[in-house]
Design a protein around this nucleic acid. Sequence first.
DNA 1: TCTGGGGTCCTAGGACCC
DNA 2: TCTGGGGTCCTAGGACCC
Length: 425
Amino acid sequence: MKAIVDCNSFYCSCERVFRPDLDSRPVVVLSNNDGCIISRSDEAKALGVGMAAPYYQNKDIIDKNGVAVFSSNYNLYGDLSHRVMDVLRKLVGPQQVEVYSVDEAFLDLFDAPHAQLESFAIRIKETVECWTGIQVSIGIAPTKLLCKLANKLAKKDKRGTGGTMVIETADQQKKALEETMIDELWGVGRQYAMKLKNLGIETAWQLRNMPEEWARKHLGGVVGVRLIKELNGIPCIPMKDPLETKQMIATTRMFGKPVQRLSDLKEAVATYTSRAAEKLRRQHCAATLLDVFVVTNNYAGSYRYNPQTRHRAAKLLEATSNTNELFKVAMPMVESLYHAGSNYLKAGVMLGGLVPDGSIQGAIFREHEKHHVKDLMTAVDNINFSMRDNAVKYLASGLARNWKMRQDMKSRRFTTRWDELYKVK
DNA sequence: TCTGGGGTCCTAGGACCC
DNA sequence: TCTGGGGTCCTAGGACCC
């Protein structure tokens, strides 16, 4: 058996930990640049505030109902997320926890006694809530897909099951699947949902009873087959090794306001490149592919939002995690992508073809020089980690930073900065 | 005036090889 | 004059997730 533990309205819950006065007030948290609403408390959902809805379109409802609004505070959320995951590791063992996202983790319960699953779930839930202040819902089932489904049902009926739900027996599975519409299923997005509805399939139970060959034909090949199997309680999505490293690293941002100057665009890409390189070094990897992209909106005759992306990719001669080496490749790419007179909304850097940095093959005559550079990178990373964000930065990243994003309603970093600690009195 | 920032997996199709 | 079949690797793009 497996479980998923999911934090309820995670970002909102994080804000409430330090603002108990908001416990019964609606709360929302905005995306970077204060653009979209990406987390809503139950009260905000009840008001009809949509997920991923643009902030400005909901401003009326928000103002009228005294909704508390926050810019996203990733230092705070990241730290509380680690605390939740640490509690889970303590309860079930570090190898049994797969962190799936900032607010969700799968647990491998292969040896948990069946008769005690329900009480086990309740104990996990109560411990996490007591130790971190974050409320969670838990779904337990034989497959990941059924776990997600159980979790969704547990969330719907908070009092009945206390925010936990076990789907184990054939009866429990049938009942749960009949209650679930296909568009609520994990792995069924807008496209598949539309397709399925056109074929007359409405509930998860109906989908479960379709033959695999049918799924292979209509639902993206192996993806569809996996869906059906998982619905039938046959595990096809394995637990991931917690030590696995990423295959791709990206850093991309919208600008606070559109930029037109090449110098601003280069500063932004340099900043994202150095961020991406930091992430790369943190997982002890080097990249062999670099991709730079820029997004323009040229408002042809109207103000319609009609973004256009252009990108350049480069294969690196030598795998590297050295920020300077990456700059040397990225900067000319920005220049070649740039057209004077365009409005740039966004830019990004992606690093791919990742290899472990212990095994970098390269020019033998440069060995000495490379050790030097590695020490420098380590020093920069250490300073930035221990001091504060970007205590040491590259000049190429700029000083004026006209393009920096807006975050007008950010709470304090209560748990990760001495000068922003919560004050009791 | 204002629409996020990451990721994964899969398929199709082209280039190339023998 | 005739012009196969099988394989690999890579890239682009779609669909999905939180």
